[in-house]
Design a protein around this nucleic acid. Structure first.
Lengths: 185, 185
DNA sequence: ATATCTCAACCAAACGTTTGTTTGGTTGAG
DNA sequence: CTCAACCAAACAAACGTTTGGTTGAGATAT
C-alpha cells in the first residue's frame, strides 16, 4: 500500500514549482511536502528533470482537457466561451499569488534547460489556438483572430507578472476585462 | 591595479543573470566570466544577494536615466516619444533572446527571495509612470493614461515571454506596433 | 633617490552545507 | 515467496562563503 499516489505527487510538485521555481525547489522540498524521504522519490521519477517533464506534461494535458477545451464549445457565444475560460482559469492563477507555472518556468529556464522548451511551446501553442478559435467564432478573419489570440495570451501573462509584483489579483481581472473588450458581439 | 571595474562586473552579471536566472547562475559562473576566482568576488560584494541588489539597482538607475527619461522629453510628440522609447529598448531586450532581467527575476524569485521585491516594484512603477506621462501627453485623462500605461507594460512583458518561447524577436516588434496603435494623435 | 610601509586587489585552498542521485536493506500486502 | 513501496544512509559534486597568504603600485619616511 503506497503512502501517496503519483497524481498527488504531481499535484504537490506543481504547487511547489509554481511558487518557488525549478532551481529553488529541491528534491528534499518535494519529498517532504509529499511525506516521503527524498530517496524514495526516485521510485516514481528517476530524475528531477523527469519529474518536471511529468509535471509539465500532466499540466499541459489538464489544460487541454479542462480549460482549452472550453474554447471549442460551439453551443454558446464566443464571448461567453471566453468568460467561462477566464472563470475556470482565475482561481488556478491567483492561488498563492503564484501565477502560471508555464510562464514562470519559461522565464526561469528556457535559455538554459532546453529540454523543457518543446512542452512549453506546445502549451502556449494550444492556448493561442484555443483563443484563436474563439475569436474566429466571434467573426474575425483568420489573420485577425490569430493576432488577437496571441495578444490576449501575452496580456494575461503580462498581467500575471504584474499581479505578482504588486500582490494584487485585481490586475489579472482587469486584464481579462480588457480581453473581453476585443469582442465585437 | 585592478583586473576589472565594478561597472564591468555588474554589466557581465546583468548578462548572466538575465540569461540563466538567479539561482542557476553560480558565483563561479560570474567570477569566471569576469576573469576572477570566485573567492575574489567577495572583495567587491559580500554576498550573492548583495551582488544581485547592486545589479538590480544599477539597472534600475540606468533605465531611469537613459530610457524612462525619454518619456519626459516634452519637445516631441507623445507618439514620437514612445517610438524613441521602443527604439532604445529593443536591442537590450532582444540580445541573446534573454528578455527583461526584471521580468525574468520577478517570476523566478518574487515568492521566495522577498528581498528583491522593493527594487522590482520600483522599477515597474517607474516604467508605468513613464508610459502614463506619455499617454497624458497624447491627450488621455489621468485615469485612462494610467490604465493604458499598465496595459502597455504588460503587453510588452508578455511579448518578451512569447519571444523567448518561440525564439522570434518579431513578436516583440509587433507588440510595440500594437502599443503605438493606442495613440490618438 | 632609495628604502620602507601600506593596503587594495587578488589567488589558491578549504570550509560547511546542500544538491541530485545511488545503494542496500526493510516492510508488508497479495 | 515475491515484489512494489519505502527508509536510512551514504555518495560525489556543486554551492556560497571564509581563510590566509601573495602581489605590487603608490604613499611615506630616510
Amino acid at each position: 500500500m503506497q503512502k501517496i499516489t503519483i497524481q498527488e505527487i504531481v499535484r504537490i510538485s506543481i504547487d511547489l514549482f509554481r511558487k518557488q521555481g525549478y532551481n529553488r525547489t529541491s528534491m528534499n522540498d518535494l519529498a517532504l511536502a509529499c511525506g516521503l524521504q527524498k530517496g524514495s522519490f526516485y521510485h516514481y521519477f528517476n530524475s528531477k528533470e523527469a519529474l518536471m517533464q511529468g509535471v509539465l506534461n500532466t499540466l499541459h494535458q489538464y489544460y487541454k482537457n479542462k480549460i482549452f477545451s472550453l474554447a471549442y464549445n460551439d453551443d454558446i457565444s464566443a464571448k461567453a466561451r471566453m468568460e467561462s475560460f477566464f472563470l475556470k482559469q482565475e482561481p488556478i492563477f491567483t492561488q498563492d499569488l503564484a501565477g502560471c507555472l508555464f510562464g514562470n518556468i519559461t522565464l526561469e529556464t528556457i535559455s538554459v534547460e532546453v529540454e523543457f522548451r518543446s512542452v512549453i511551446q506546445a502549451f502556449f501553442s494550444d492556448w493561442i489556438a484555443a483563443f484563436k478559435h474563439i475569436f474566429i467564432a466571434d467573426g474575425c478573419t483568420d489573420e485577425m483572430a490569430s493576432q488577437l489570440a496571441k495578444q490576449s495570451v501575452m496580456e494575461i501573462e503580462g498581467a500575471l507578472m504584474m499581479m505578482r509584483v504588486f500582490e494584487d489579483v485585481e490586475i489579472l481581472r482587469q486584464a481579462c476585462v480588457s480581453v473581453l473588450k476585443k469582442f465585437k458581439n
